[in-house]
Computed example of a mutant assay.
Amino acid sequence: MKESKAKKVLHGDKNQKVTHNGQLVWLEHVNESSGEALVSVMDTGEKKTVPVSELEHQGQGLR
């Protein structure tokens, strides 16, 4: 995913499915200058910083 898309997902008014290495994650913050995002893994709550390029947008769907 590109940083601009990640920012749109983060600040959008609709919930979006985003995955990192097959795990569903919640975007917490996007740092455009470093190209990284702070995410929370939905199943475990673990927070980690990952490259935005490793995130995959799966579309709408979280309720």
Rank of each mutant, 00 (worst) to 15 (best):
M1Y: 06
E3I: 14
E3L: 13
S4V: 14
S4P: 08
S4K: 14
K5T: 11
K5M: 07
A6R: 05
A6S: 04
A6Q: 02
K7H: 08
K7R: 12
K8G: 03
K8W: 10
V9A: 01
V9G: 01
V9N: 01
V9K: 06
L10S: 11
H11S: 07
G12V: 00
G12H: 03
D13T: 13
D13H: 14
D13M: 14
D13E: 15
D13L: 14
K14M: 15
N15Q: 11
N15H: 10
N15W: 09
N15K: 11
Q16R: 15
K17S: 08
V18C: 04
V18I: 10
V18R: 02
T19N: 09
T19Q: 08
T19Y: 01
H20K: 02
H20E: 01
H20R: 02
N21A: 15
G22Q: 05
G22V: 08
G22P: 07
G22A: 12
Q23Y: 08
L24E: 11
L24N: 07
V25N: 00
L27P: 02
L27C: 06
L27D: 02
L27T: 04
E28I: 11
E28F: 03
E28N: 08
E28P: 00
E28K: 10
H29Y: 13
V30M: 02
V30L: 03
V30S: 07
V30N: 00
N31H: 03
N31F: 05
N31P: 00
E32T: 15
S33W: 10
S33N: 14
S33V: 15
S34A: 12
S34L: 11
S34T: 15
G35K: 10
G35L: 03
E36Q: 07
E36M: 08
E36S: 03
E36Y: 06
A37D: 01
A37H: 02
A37E: 03
L38Y: 01
L38Q: 06
L38M: 04
V39I: 15
V39T: 03
V39W: 01
V39K: 04
S40I: 14
V41G: 06
V41M: 05
V41H: 07
V41Y: 02
M42Y: 06
M42T: 08
D43L: 07
D43I: 04
D43C: 07
D43Q: 12
D43K: 11
T44D: 05
G45K: 06
G45H: 09
E46R: 04
K47A: 12
K48F: 00
T49S: 09
V50C: 00
V52C: 11
S53L: 06
S53T: 13
E54Y: 02
E54P: 01
E54C: 04
E54S: 12
E54M: 05
L55N: 01
L55T: 02
E56N: 13
E56G: 05
H57C: 06
H57T: 04
H57I: 06
Q58N: 13
G59N: 05
Q60I: 11
Q60T: 12
Q60S: 13
Q60N: 11
G61T: 01
L62W: 08
R63W: 09
R63F: 10
R63S: 12
